[in-house]
Design a protein around this nucleic acid. Structure first.
Length: 506
RNA sequence: GCAGCUGUAGCUCAGUUGGUUAGAGCGUCGGAUUGUGGCUCCGAAGGUCGGUGGUUCAACCCCACUCAGCUGUACCA
């Protein structure tokens, strides 16, 4: 009996949850995507800026109230002077810090875009990571509804530039002041109602996710979900719930520059209109849509949606959300809605935290990773099938110099090429080239060398030819898609093959 | 956080009322083919059955605890 040798205790290679490695195909696809978005932002006159991953926690505003500790949702650590530092959880707070710190030097309104990783220490899920990429554009220093309108139009243009057809996405617009007014109208104004107000707003946010009966439960006594978990409700009275219902089912009439909002019941309309914040919010959204419609962006691209609730802590006026409308099936056949792929709004208080004067600002953020997943499903993700390098196989190990010089000739002609650097035989080298998605391989054994020839095998053509071949011997005899040319014709022969398979390139 | 479900090979999954040596497909590696990827055939490697404890003559299977994953829900600045 041979004894099994004790297994060495080996480190387990594993990635912390909520994080993802990104293979070549994904990097290429993301690059292509980002280029398209960047082009749109540049067209609108926005300039790039970059800030670091790390900020002072206090600058992010992420200290827990009454505690000397950062919010758990941010990755934080202490500097050697004990000051708390955090990985940024979005790109807006760092931008606010940047603008405040460089206020005098920047031309205002300051229009900039930026792209980068952000980090959230939260429970990950499908399409939700602890590190993900955002692509933002913001206008700082303008309180004009034109700035808000422009941001929305730019978001719509960006989605279309990525190949999402009109009608398959929509930019939804609401206004915090309208929401605040409605809260006040049902008696939830004031500091003492902050908790219940939050509960009600969250229930409103669920309006596009749950049917109205479920929202009613959340507004009333509470809701028991299918797993048996109970969510406490806001405890609103029936007439208050009716007011929310009327609000969510308000009609919006659009006629040229005219934008009219009417609640389902005249009494409720009247009670809302008695609130100053409500009137202000309605006026702002009317101004915005006047501009949006004048620019030719109809409700098929940008529309009002009163159920949008975002960033309760810092948005002060208009809020936006980009939603994809198409539904797809995942590998298991379950329907998947991508839903929100971006959002934004006006955050007039954020820069002002660092400055004596108030600084209005508005912006929009695209969730790059989630959008990339959606584009993949749509088949609009480029760069997934980029060809690999031409592989020059090593036949005689003592003639590496010959092979290397072929590689150099190909590279000099701008053709991606490499010499096989492993130690395996020709068969394995062919497999390697196959896996690398090489368009073709170069083979030169002793016979060819003596005759001043090389073999070029077109792997793409070969794969096609193989469909008709049944036996190995047949393949071996035919050597499909393989040509023999003079050594001197290496570059032009490879170029011909590439031109055949990738007519656009080169 | 709360609730439900699931943890068996790199991946997807079988595994009988608790009973010898835990299987398959795919993938990987090798061979058939010392000079040619894909098709075919043959072979091999690969497992602390998530972990710990318990019940039992005997546990992948039953029980308790624990960890991880998935789903829903909550939170998401």
């Amino acid at each position: 009996m041979s004894q099994k040798p004790a297994k060495p205790q080996r480190l387990k290679a594993r990635l912390p949850r909520g994080l993802a490695d990104r293979p070549a195909s994904e990097l290429r696809a993301t690059d292509a995507m980002l280029g398209k978005i960047r082009k749109v932002y540049e067209l609108y006159g926005f300039e790039p800026v970059e800030t670091p991953f790390i900020e002072y926690t206090e600058g992010l505003g992420k200290f827990l109230p009454d505690q000397d500790r950062p919010n758990e949702g941010v990755f934080s650590f202490q500097d050697d002077d004990e000051a708390w530092l955090s990985l940024r959880y979005d790109l807006t707070a760092p931008l606010a810090r940047y603008v405040a710190e460089n206020f005098e030097a920047l031309a205002k309104p300051y229009r900039s875009y930026r792209l980068g990783w952000v980090f959230r220490n939260e429970k990950p899920g499908p399409g939700r990571f602890r590190q993900f990429m955002q692509f933002d554009a913001d206008t700082v220093g303008s309180g004009s509804p034109a700035a808000d309108a422009e941001i929305c139009m730019m978001a719509a243009d960006a989605l279309e530039a990525l190949g999402i057809p009109r009608g398959q996405y929509v930019i939804k617009v609401n206004n915090r002041k309208i929401l605040d007014g409605v809260m006040e109208a049902i008696g939830l104004g004031g500091e003492e109602n902050a908790g219940r107000r939050l509960t009600v707003l969250r229930a409103i946010d669920k309006a596009d996710k749950f049917p109205w009966e479920e929202v009613t439960k959340l507004l009333g006594s509470g809701r028991l979900d299918e797993s048996g978990d109970f969510t406490k409700g806001a405890g609103l009275a029936e007439n208050e719930i009716a007011a929310i219902h009327a609000y969510l089912h308000a009609s919006v009439q659009v006629d040229g520059a005219l934008f009219l909002v009417r609640m389902a019941s005249p009494q409720i309309d009247q009670s809302f209109s008695a609130i100053a914040a409500y009137r202000e919010g309605i006026a702002e959204i009317q101004d915005m849509f006047g501009l949006i419609q004048a620019a030719g962006y109809g409700p098929d691209r940008i529309k009002a949606d009163f159920s949008v609730v975002r960033g309760l802590e810092y948005y002060t006026g208009p809020v936006f959300e980009a939603e994809l409308l198409f539904e797809v099936k995942d590998e298991k056949g379950n329907p998947v809605r991508f839903g929100s792929v971006g959002g934004g709004g006006r955050y007039d208080g954020l820069v002002g935290r660092f400055r004596p004067e108030p600084v209005p600002a508005t912006g929009f953020s695209i969730g790059v990773s989630r959008l990339a997943a959606a584009l993949k499903v749509l088949g609009r993700l480029d760069g997934l099938n980029a060809p690999g390098p031409v592989v020059v196989t090593v036949f005689d190990k003592d003639r590496l110099a010959d092979y290397q010089s072929m590689v150099a000739r190909l590279r000099a002609a701008g053709i991606a090429a490499e010499m096989y650097l492993g130690s395996a035989g020709l068969k394995a080298q062919m497999k390697y080239a196959d896996r690398r998605k090489s368009p073709c391989v170069i083979i030169q054994g002793g016979d060819e060398k003596a005759a001043g020839k090389i073999q070029i095998k077109d792997l793409i053509e070969g794969a096609k030819a193989d469909e008709a071949i049944v036996s190995h011997t047949e393949r071996k005899e035919q050597r499909p898609a393989q040509i023999e040319v003079d050594e001197s014709a290496l570059v032009e022969s490879v170029q011909a093959i590439l031109a055949r398979h990738f007519p656009a390139a080169g």
